[in-house]
Design a protein around this nucleic acid. Structure first.
Lengths: 132, 132
DNA sequence: CTGGATCCCGAATGATACTG
DNA sequence: CAGTATCATTCGGGATCCAG
């Protein structure tokens, strides 16, 4: 085959997009961010609830992850000065803009798992493809 | 406001999707996978080329990343038994199915950077939002 | 040239104790 | 309850050397 380039005009443009991908991954990737965002997609939650529900996360880590998300405008921190005080975290409007992306990731993942499963059932190599 | 759930029917369903997201992220996330895939999107490349172009990657790491991608059917390894032998890595058809996802990540990242930039120009907090 | 084996280090994480 | 501070540990990544 001659050229397999998939629609990147220049190499520079390509690398610019790679940096953007890394940006996004730093914001919503990592070990906990996705689970955290998903939980908050479901409903607003308190610090202690999250600590309990995110199986195995350490308090220190949870704090930092939440702070990151807050700084990026994805999550809103609300303090009620009850006694003792309670803090609620909720997804911001902007945070909800991530949902489409996360849905894309989830769908691909489900599809991939399905694909692996079919492949193992057939006891055949997954890719019988010859390019071009 | 009453309910902010963004379209997850049950909590279990939500968590199932979280696992799928993690799957996907393990496959195309991390420090090098995206850059690697982007490079191969651009054109097939040799091991040594990649080693040179992926600024700072260690040989051991490159091997492992490529092996991962290969095992997941995203990349095809082609050996030419020249002397000395050369190995070419190319994106598989299946690997190309990731492009849409990566484009989504890239677009969000670019948009986010733009947003941060506008915000700093205005010297205003990014989120002046009040939910619901 | 391709890439595996080994050693080493820093960063991230977990556990625990402590403060407001 | 909501977090922070500290310490111990683990893990991924880099450098180097070696083999097919």
């Amino acid at each position: 085959m001659e050229n397999e380039n998939i629609g990147y005009p220049t190499f520079g443009e390509c690398m610019k997009r790679v940096r953007a991908i890394d940006d996004t991954l730093h914001i919503m990737g990592g070990k906990w961010k996705a689970v955290l965002l998903a939980h908050l997609c479901y409903k607003p939650m308190r610090y202690s609830e999250l600590l309990k529900d995110l199986n195995g996360i350490a308090g220190k880590v949870l704090s930092r992850e939440l702070k990151d998300l807050e700084m990026n405008g994805l999550v809103i921190r609300e303090v009620s000065d009850t006694q003792p005080l309670t803090v609620t975290y909720r997804l911001s409007q902007y945070g909800k803009s991530l949902k489409e992306l996360m849905d894309g990731l989830a769908d691909w993942g489900l599809q991939h798992r399905e694909r692996l499963f079919s492949a193992s059932k057939l006891e055949q190599p997954v890719s019988v493809e010859r390019e071009a």
